[in-house]
Structures are given as structure tokens and as C-alpha cells.
């Protein structure tokens, strides 16, 4: 694994960005883990809980010329590998690293 601290400094004209990605199951797709956690919360007395959905949070450190380029690259990564479009959706946030 490449930790952020191992990334080389930004190249000429490049900026370092941090992509914050949430991958979650599409609404309507059963989430057995989320349902189990919801039942546990109800058992603990949190009667106000209506639903729990469990997903993944990924932080991707990357170089790009600008924020839009960083976002486009992250979009492509999500489509190709980070999310399975059959069952998952994703949200991307890009911030300067």
C-alpha cells in the first residue's frame, strides 16, 4: 500500500489533492450488515433509528493540474475499480491535500 506520506512531492504544474470517496450500496439493494447494526441499535434502546446503511470511505491522494482533473480521474477510478456499478454508488469530494 502507498500511504500518503510516501507520495513524492507534486511535479511541475501539479498540485496534490485528496479525494474523499464514499462507496455505498444503491438504495433498494439489501444491506444485511446495516440491517444487523440497526437491530443492535434498537436493542440498545435507540428507538429513533429507522435505518442503517454501511459503506466504505476511501481517501485517495493524487496529483493533478487542477481540481476538475483530479475529480475526473477519481470518477474513472470509481467506475473501473472502486465501486461495482451493479450494486454500489459513489460520491466524490476533492480537496487540496
Amino acid at each position: 500500500m502507498i500511504g500518503l506520506r510516501h507520495l513524492p512531492g507534486a511535479g511541475q504544474g501539479q498540485m496534490l489533492y485528496s479525494g474523499r470517496i464514499h462507496v455505498t450500496l444503491k438504495s433498494g439493494v439489501l444491506d444485511p450488515q446495516g440491517d444487523t447494526v440497526a437491530r443492535s441499535l434498537l436493542a440498545l434502546g435507540y428507538d429513533q433509528v429507522k435505518q442503517v446503511r454501511i459503506g466504505k470511505y476511501l481517501q485517495v491522494g493524487l496529483e493533478a493540474e487542477g481540481q476538475e482533473e483530479a475529480r475526473a480521474a477519481l470518477e474513472e477510478m470509481c467506475r473501473q475499480l472502486l465501486a461495482n456499478p451493479v450494486i454500489e454508488q459513489y460520491e466524490i469530494e476533492v480537496v487540496p491535500a
Binding site: L25, V29, P32, T36, N84
Partner: peptide, 17 residues
């Protein structure tokens, strides 16, 4: 095979977790 798109669909965690 599912991830590679050679077969349609996907796998979720077992309903029993």
C-alpha cells in the same frame, strides 16, 4: 466472473451476515 463482467449481476454479503 461477476466482477469481470463475464456473468451478469453481483454478490452481496449473505443475508445472515
Amino acid at each position: 466472473l461477476l466482477e469481470a463482467g463475464l456473468l451478469p449481476g453481483a454478490m452481496l454479503v449473505n443475508d445472515s451476515v
